[in-house]
Amino acid sequence: MKQYQLLIFDWDGTLMDSVGKIVACIQASSRSLELAVPSESAVRDIIGLSMHKALHTLHDNLDDVIYNKMIELYRQQYLELNDTPSPLFEGAESLIQQLDQKGYQLAVATGKARAGLTRVLNETGLGHYFIASRCADEALSKPNPEMINQLLIERHVTPEQCLMIGDSLHDLNMANSAGVDAIGVSYGAHGTSKLSRANPKAMINAPLDLLNYLGH
């Protein structure tokens, strides 16, 4: 099996079971502003994008004042008002621990802003396992390859030595654009049939399945 040095994980829908909460918070924020409430499938399709790009996809032709208000409402929903659970997926913590023990470099490329990623890394206790990360307010939004390209440069790793793991087409298309291999996660925002459009190297149905792909 090909040996990778750097494993880059998406966060929402890949390591954390937060898709349901994101859907509920986006819908509630839209409702509060008396905007058309997007369907669950529509929200799932924007998970992984930067918040700005996501909202412009869901609600086109709104002025910046409304967009900024919706971002504020979404954060309030996510941090204070919405009680939808968003735990780590079963096996995710064990996976990260085992990969760290096996000497892989671990990184995150996420649609979250830096403040949001820092919060969940602290809450889950996983922060010390990840040696690098890129967030949506630090690079161009997925599927642009900038997040991965920056991580490759920072870690002195070639594309051939890197593997991206994600649950959305945005993750896999970003990997394709950066010239790195990708693994699709079937249990997150997008299912197997949609992810297969991006021709991932494999699909996994649970976090610990990644160990089998890597030959452990």
Rank of each mutant, 00 (worst) to 15 (best):
M164I: 02
A178T: 03
L208E: 14
E160V: 11
L121Q: 06
S133L: 03
A202I: 08
R75G: 14
Q161N: 11
L79C: 10
R197A: 15
R119T: 07
S94A: 14
G91A: 02
A198Q: 04
N176L: 04
D100Y: 11
L172N: 02
Q76F: 15
M174G: 00
S141Q: 06
R155W: 06
R114V: 12
H156F: 10
T110K: 01
L81V: 15
C135V: 06
S86E: 11
L151E: 07
T118Q: 13
A115T: 12
K112I: 06
I183P: 04
G91D: 05
E80T: 12
H170K: 05
A189I: 09
G91T: 04
N205V: 14
E80Y: 15
P200V: 02
N82A: 08
S94T: 14
L88I: 07
V185N: 04
I153W: 10
I153G: 05
K102F: 14
V157A: 09
L163T: 02
G188T: 08
A202G: 10
P143R: 08
I204R: 08
A178W: 00
E160L: 10
S168C: 03
P145S: 08
M164H: 01
G188V: 07
K102L: 15
G191W: 08
L88Y: 04
A206L: 09
P207L: 12
I148E: 01
P207H: 10
P200W: 01
P85H: 07
G116V: 05
G127L: 04
K112G: 02
G127D: 06
Y78M: 10
A115M: 09
N173W: 02
V108S: 03
F89K: 00
L172D: 01
E80W: 13
E123R: 11
T192E: 15
L88W: 04
Q98P: 08
A107I: 05
A182N: 03
D137Y: 09
N173D: 04
Q161K: 09
E154W: 05
A139G: 04
